[in-house]
């Protein structure tokens, strides 16, 4: 039950460093699933870190339910990082218990079962493959039943069936808890399949190129003809969208629109 109002003027990591984020503003209403799509290096992860309260906001503001973000977010927030970031010295079950100390063993087993890791609760992360570690990190994020869920390219490096299953799980969780989701991805198909809205970011410093509502009926399959048409239409209307460039936006750097 949380909405987000994001209004960033600019963001850079140090005074003499180039800006990672340019002027950028968008809202995420409560229970909405918003994807951020853009080329690498546009500050998508930085933006998620700022929402999570891990990165200070220099100029601008982020509001949770009209409450200005200062320090840690005023709600239950989960973050699936690009790297699994599990504690190597804790077994899988304890890694989950770390974020939910009072969760019962059967809840943890159920969650592990959901992400396809039944019977792995006594393993140390090093004993699992990269994809399995990633699924543990996804289970950890889901276990807390968050109000806001941030995902930083969570399904890369997963095999197709598991990625598919976890996407459905994500949708299930999102519908169940009315979670507000901000989802960062490179994969346009994934974004179209999952989101209510897709926000396309320009190349660095990141600004909003296009804020597009996805008005396709759910569930959506990417081999579906409407899906494909929608995507084709989007890309033909906005050439250069995925490269972080779009017509009608002027660039100061001469490389934009070149070639």
């Amino acid at each position: 039950m949380v909405n987000l109002k994001i209004a960033i003027e600019r963001k850079s990591y140090a005074k003499n460093m180039p800006d990672v984020l340019g002027p950028l503003a968008f809202n995420v209403s409560q229970g909405e699933f918003v994807s951020l799509v853009g080329p690498s290096g546009t500050g998508k992860s930085t933006l998620l870190n700022m929402i999570a309260g891990l990165e200070p906001i220099q100029d601008g503001s982020i509001r949770f339910n009209d409450q200005l973000l200062a320090g840690s977010p005023p709600c239950k927030l989960s973050y699936i990082f690009q790297q699994p970031r599990l504690m190597p010295w804790l077994i899988v079950a304890d890694n989950l218990r770390l974020v939910m100390p009072d969760s019962a063993p059967f809840e943890i087993e159920k969650m592990l079962d959901k992400v396809g890791l039944k019977g792995k609760s006594d393993c140390y992360p090093k004993q699992l493959s990269g994809g399995m570690q990633r699924r543990v990190s996804i289970a950890r994020a889901f276990l807390t039943r968050p109000d806001v869920l941030l995902l930083d390219e969570p399904f890369i490096s997963l095999d197709a069936p598991n990625a598919h299953r976890l996407r459905s799980l994500l949708v299930e969780l999102w519908l169940e808890h009315k979670t507000t989701v901000v989802f960062v991805t490179h994969d346009l198909n994934e974004a179209i399949q999952l989101s209510d809205r897709i926000i396309f970011l320009s190349s660095s410093p990141g600004t909003v190129l296009l804020d597009k509502e996805v008005d396709l009926p759910r569930p959506r399959a990417d081999e579906d003809i409407h899906f494909q048409n929608w995507k084709k239409h989007l890309l033909s209307q906005n050439p250069g969208l995925l490269e972080g460039q779009a017509d009608g936006i002027e660039y100061e750097s001469f490389s934009g629109g070149f070639i």
């Binding site: 999570a52 309260g53 927030l77 504690m87 010295w89 770390l98």
Partner: peptide, 27 residues
Amino acid sequence: RDLLQVAQVFKVSPFRCFFKVYLPQLY
């Protein structure tokens, strides 16, 4: 720092964070 950020995001209590996230790295 990445692991400490996990503790921060998931609001792990300072006590648990110290003994489960921070101290094991020093063992």
